[in-house]
Each structure stands twice: as structure tokens, then as C-alpha cells.
Write a protein that binds this DNA or RNA. Structure first.
Lengths: 146, 146
DNA sequence: CTAGACTCTCCCCCACAATGGAGAGTCGAT
DNA sequence: ATCGACTCTCCATTGTGGGGGAGAGTCTAG
């Protein structure tokens, strides 16, 4: 007996495995990237077909969404992998993700500080810039002295 | 006739060439770095000794100071090389350096903008963070939705 | 003459996140 | 049977600024 109109999510036992090209199209990533992620352990395949083709589960799509999202937030693949490891251990990764994101804010803040400092130095240097200075020994550009 | 006590800078004709190790010690850079810069064309040697050793002129020290300074200001070696090329053509490089530094300020500004934008997104995300959310389908972390 | 310090070239390696391509194998349809 | 689309592994490359080390040659003091 076959329930017509039954949604795919209800037929959990019949998980249809995807080959890498399908997953690439559905996720918007390239085949190369998916293989790369699998090599890194970010994206486990459920197995191989008889011909040796990687087979991916439906959940890979959520996983790739997760990876994509954290990447745009500036986390490295290694940090993302740590979060995924928590998830794969059956725990809720939200706490770990939160900590990673807080660390990321810290990194951003110090980067901004450095950039502001550098900008200030550049501004100061350009403020007193003389486009045609007197030659001063063998110095290549006299404007550059601290 | 040899003037005793005459400073080295006055005996310009007797430019004493340095081998790479001496230049490294005097400039505070490594031998590896100096060879690298010479390969790139940033730091021309005046020639080779009979044994094939690179020989550098006294001016290399000013040149390395220049490179070091522009590097700390965030210019790439390629940009620095463009400035040095102007200098080596006998022109005053100050105008070119000025333009490079202005471009650098522009880059810094857009980097800061990007970082601020990212920080805002992270802050917003963490503001509504729930460390123990309800499970929502197969989504790995419900907090991450845009 | 020999030991030690110095230098040479050449090649490989790091981070980071992929990308490109060669050459071979697999799958589905005709 | 064969064609095209797909996939596999393996290796190299991208950009940036160097670092490490092998193996060989050179220079200098004792």
C-alpha cells in the first residue's frame, strides 16, 4: 500500500542517496568543493556505489547550508568542523557555535583596531607630504621618515 | 695620498661591497629574505664575486629601509617595486608613493566597512541567541537562520 | 692543509580554500 | 556496442612572503 502524496520526509527509511553531481547542483557548490569537504571530513558520504561513486544523504544539504552560513560569518573550515563534530556526537552545537562567533567578533575587533591604527599613520604621513622634497642623503623618499 | 679619518661616505669611489650575510646583519633581515628580494628584482646586487657570491652596495641599506617602511604601511612587495622602479629611473618616487598610500587608505576603508558589516551581523545573531532551542527539522542550528 | 664559517643553487614546505586538468573507469540510453 | 555524461584518483597551481634543508663550492684563520 502506497500513500499517494506522502511527503518525502515521512519515508525516512527510503533515504535516496545522491551522487556528487546532484548534490552539487542542489547545493550550489561545485563538485570539486564537495570532494574537498569530504576529504576534510566536513561532509561524510554515506558510502560508495558499486562503481565507487560517493553517495550522499539528504541531510548533506542541511550540512552544506550550515557550512555556507558559517563561512559567510567568517569562520574557517576548521572551526566549522569543530562545530559539526559536536553535532555529530549527538550534542546540540549551539553553545559551541556561539563561542566561535564570539571569538570571531573578537578577531574582527582587533582587526579593525589594527586597520584604524594603520590608517591613522597613513593619514598623518600624507598630511605632511611634500611632493617635491629636498634630497636628503641617499634616502629614497624623505617623506617616509617616522 | 690617503686621508686618515676621512669618513666612508666621502670616499664614494671606493664603495665597499658587502656579501649577503653582512647586509643581512646590518639590515636586520635574513639571508633568505635578501635572496628572495633580489630574485624579485627589489634589491639588485652590484655583481658577483669571483666565487659567485652576491655583492651589495652600501645603498642597499637605504633600499631595505624603504622596503621595510612601506611594508609596515601595508604595501605589497609588488607595489613597493613599482615605487622603486620610478626611483631607479632617476625620478622622484614621492608622487607615486603618495598615490600608493592613498590607494592603501582606500583599501583599509573598505576593509573596515566590511568588517563592521560582518560584526553587525554577528552581533544581531548573538543578540537573539538561544542556547537550547527547539529542534527544527534537520537544521543543525536553528539560531543560524537569516 | 684543514676546520669552520659562509655562500651558492635547487627543491620542497607553510597557511587557506579551493581550482584545473590528465587519464581512467562507470552509468544510462540508444 | 557505443556515445556522452558523469565520476574517480592523483597531481599541480593559485596568491603572498618567505622558511628549511640538502649538497656542493668558497673563503679565511690558524
Amino acid at each position: 500500500m502506497q500513500a499517494i502524496g506522502m511527503t518525502a520526509s515521512l519515508t525516512a527509511s527510503t533515504t535516496v542517496a545522491m551522487k556528487i553531481g546532484v548534490l552539487a547542483r542542489r547545493s550550489g557548490m561545485t563538485v570539486k568543493t564537495l570532494r574537498y569537504y569530504e576529504d576534510l571530513g566536513l561532509l561524510p558520504a554515506i558510502g560508495r556505489s558499486e562503481g565507487g561513486y560517493r553517495l550522499f544523504a539528504e541531510e548533506s544539504l542541511q550540512r552544506l547550508e550550515f557550512i555556507r552560513r558559517l563561512k559567510t560569518l567568517g569562520l574557517s573550515l576548521e572551526e566549522i568542523q569543530r562545530c559539526l563534530a559536536v553535532h555529530d556526537a549527538g550534542e546540540l552545537p549551539c553553545g559551541d557555535i556561539q563561542r566561535q562567533l564570539e571569538r570571531q567578533i573578537g578577531r574582527i575587533d582587533s582587526q579593525i583596531q589594527e586597520l584604524r591604527q594603520l590608517r591613522k599613520e597613513l593619514q598623518g604621513l600624507l598630511a605632511g607630504w611634500q611632493s617635491d622634497p629636498a634630497k636628503d642623503g641617499d634616502v629614497i623618499c624623505p617623506n617616509l621618515r617616522v
